[in-house]
Design a binder for these strands. Structure first.
Length: 311
DNA sequence: AAGACGAAAGTGGTTGA
DNA sequence: TCAACAACTTTCGTCTT
């Protein structure tokens, strides 16, 4: 089940930073990394697979983007059968107890089969959306699979009814990212799915409660490399930021704090300390918190940790 | 003029009576 | 059920480089 997620990359063989040759593709985090110095060479791994899934030839033919489109309007073609609740035969005569019991069983199965159909359709719809979104977000395979599992379970427990497929899927993706320790922010998922942050959060809490997902609170560390890289911060500055976070965690300053805000603050401090300064505004924009939060957080950190970043 | 600062009011969620 | 609360955000006027 768990095979080695790190594979050697053929194309890039020499690290531009340290000239090392141990470049690995980390499928787990969706990054290409130098094992010697930790430089993330590329985090945007392109997925060339089609955005749809097919399980047999017929389905493949249907889903390929050539040929006539499948109309969403002809789901079941109106072919489901209703079994009447009046216990009378087609001549209007009452029917015997024995046949009545039989018909009762038939009705029961009919209901079950139809319900299966509808949740299957729901899941199929969600999965094609999942493939689209994970392509946009470059989600690693294990996250996609986790998201699919979470959604499937939710659908089978009938938790989707009354909520939108896309909304619940967004929450499942968020949960999967957290569970795999490669968290994305509500903002990032919101951008990719067009679902408001509010709704993702609400659905996520609902899912976590109903499915009893034991997900640990996200650590600021989980965001560090991704955001550090996004800001194009130097390797030293990223190491410095990690140092600051480590210290903060030891001093128990991180509990009950928004990990995103902490990462933003630590990156800001590190950027100043290492002479690779980024403005509060730039960091705020890239990471998705406000300048005010960065300010408050870094003031708090520098005071409690005794780190002076006088300019 | 850009960047940093911080006060004040608003937001959505949690908690505890 | 509702008010108090903690953590963040938005907005905005002011200071600093």
């Amino acid at each position: 089940m768990v095979e080695d997620k790190r594979k050697l990359v053929e194309e890039v063989t020499i690290c531009p930073e340290c000239k090392g040759t141990h470049i690995v593709k980390d499928l787990y985090r969706g990054e290409i990394v130098c094992e010697d110095c930790g430089l993330v060479i590329d985090e945007e791994m392109i997925d060339y697979a089609p955005e749809w899934r097919a399980f047999d030839k017929e389905e493949r033919d249907k889903k390929a983007h050539t040929g006539a489109p499948v109309s969403p309007l002809i789901h079941d073609g109106g072919l489901t059968t209703e079994i009447s609740y009046q216990n009378r035969d087609s001549y209007g005569r009452p029917i015997s107890n024995k046949t009545r019991a039989q018909i009762y069983r038939l009705r029961k199965w009919q209901r079950r089969i139809r319900m299966r159909d509808s949740t299957d359709r729901n899941i199929a719809e969600a999965f094609s959306q999942l493939m689209r979104v994970s392509s946009i977000m470059n989600l690693p395979r294990n996250v996609r699979e986790t998201a699919a599992m979470i959604y499937k379970k939710a659908a089978e427990m009938d938790l989707i009814r009354g909520r939108t497929i896309d909304g619940m899927l967004a929450a499942a993706i968020y949960a999967a990212c957290r569970q795999c320790h490669v968290p994305r922010t509500f903002d990032e998922i919101s951008m990719a799915t067009n679902i408001p942050k509010k709704e993702i959060g609400r659905n996520y809490r609902f899912l976590a409660r109903e499915l009893k997902l034991h997900i640990l609170p996200a650590s600021p560390m989980d965001y560090l490399t991704r955001f550090g890289n996004k800001l194009k911060l130097s390797v030293e500055a990223q190491a410095k930021a990690k140092e600051i976070l480590d210290q903060a965690e030891q001093e128990r300053l991180t509990i009950g704090q928004n990990p995103i805000g902490l990462v933003a603050a630590s990156l800001y401090m590190a950027s100043v300390l290492c002479g690779d300064k980024k403005t509060q505004k730039e960091i705020a924009e890239k990471i998705g918190v406000t300048e005010v939060t960065i300010r408050n957080k870094y003031k708090q950190l520098s005071k409690k940790l005794g780190i002076d970043i006088a300019l």
